[in-house]
Design a protein around this nucleic acid. Structure first.
Lengths: 214, 214
DNA sequence: TAGATTGTTAATCGATTAACAATC
DNA sequence: TAGATTGTTAATCGATTAACAATC
């Protein structure tokens, strides 16, 4: 694999989609696929697929194409899905509970190991066998378990203080559902943002500008 | 406003963030802001801000900057947040319930008017005063209420059939949390996709390639 | 008027697509 | 060998940044 430092954000954002389609083909028993075929299935150009794959080294065979299973495994390796990182969830409101119970973290390289909420109302409740703990237990837990990542499902106004605390406790990666901009204060930390309301507003824009096509 | 057909996806994706920062400044009582100041607050270049705003016509004053309130209102207008579109939610599982109860649709140009789930278990339950209806009631409801948009929070395997049905019933816009690719079959429809698992895998990649910085 | 900041054009940078030699 | 398809270079396209004249 080439030095991955240079891989652009555009390429990285496409990797999960490649992985999904490869899993799908593999589960359907497909053995080989050419960039042209994959391009047609995914609705992108064959050129882009080959360029993207070659960022990580060539795993195709000229004149033949790509082995589906091998390529899927490469993609999984590149994404780091095999190295399971431990995650804690901060905020057990509606969104937090949905994320915790709906998403299978294990398939995506993470294992959810604890859930925290400041509201004592939740205390004792369980999500998928994980008890909801109080915020006052975060410090002790992190010192003991050294989790790698925190999922932030808490109100925007509580996020800055919480992030300070979590960083102090050694957490260096965040899956951020709040609007708090973590990178601003901590540029070296790993962050993936999910801004649901931005997505909804974008849809509003598209509807307004779809030439009466809706 | 110029012909908005030509606005690039990159620009559109930035509009909600501008709107958020302008709302914030406005709520703090700030009257005017220059592109330079806003750039510094948002962590982008002043050039990009001016270029982006000028896609929609010039609403600044040379030598002075931009009126915060006016600019916020323009942004709201551009995004179509003032024209409330009606939305229905398909799927009242964890994610559906989170989206319905957490997100304030009204602020983002939509009003949630009905919730459907195929599971009779949910029947009679309410989310924010909206009763959960059975899937068998979708047709009658759509014919009567003509909703504009559907939020898809249902399993991927049920999505294709449901989308066919909803399109048949006149729905032309989707906020899509499933992995089903609506645009493939219906290129003219408005879609905003939210792929939570892709976002999580991207985070996994970033952690793996952060030079041991986590 | 002088200073500031926009609107807009030009320059740069990066990403996507096309082309083709290498090779299975 | 002939056909197919990759890996990779070159060409194109688009987005971002810089520069500056217009003007408040």
């Amino acid at each position: 694999m080439k030095n991955s430092k240079e891989i652009s954000a555009s390429v990285i954002s496409r990797l999960p989609r490649y992985y999904r389609f490869l899993c799908d083909l593999h589960s359907k028993g497909v053995i080989r696929v050419s960039s042209k075929e994959l391009a047609s299935i995914m609705g992108v150009t064959a050129s882009q697929i080959r360029q993207d794959f070659n960022c990580f080294g060539g795993f195709g065979q000229q004149g033949y194409g790509y082995q589906v299973e091998q390529l899927k495994n490469e993609m999984s390796e590149i994404l780091g899905l095999n190295e399971i990182k431990t995650a804690i969830l901060i905020g057990a409101g509606n969104l937090g509970r949905a994320v915790a119970s709906q998403l299978s973290f294990e398939d995506k390289g993470f294992k959810l190991v604890a859930i925290f909420d400041c509201d004592p109302l939740f205390k004792g409740m369980k999500i998928r066998d994980l008890p909801i703990k109080g915020d006052d237990e975060i410090e002790a837990f992190c010192n003991e378990a050294k989790p790698d990542m925190a999922v932030l499902c808490l109100p925007a106004d509580k996020a800055p203080e919480m992030v300070d605390e979590l960083i102090r406790l050694g957490i260096r990666s965040f899956w951020n559902f709040s609007h708090y901009d973590i990178h601003r204060k901590y540029p070296d930390v790993c962050v993936a943002n999910v801004h649901l309301s931005d997505s909804l507003m974008t849809l509003s824009y598209k509807i307004k500008n779809n030439d009466g096509n809706w």
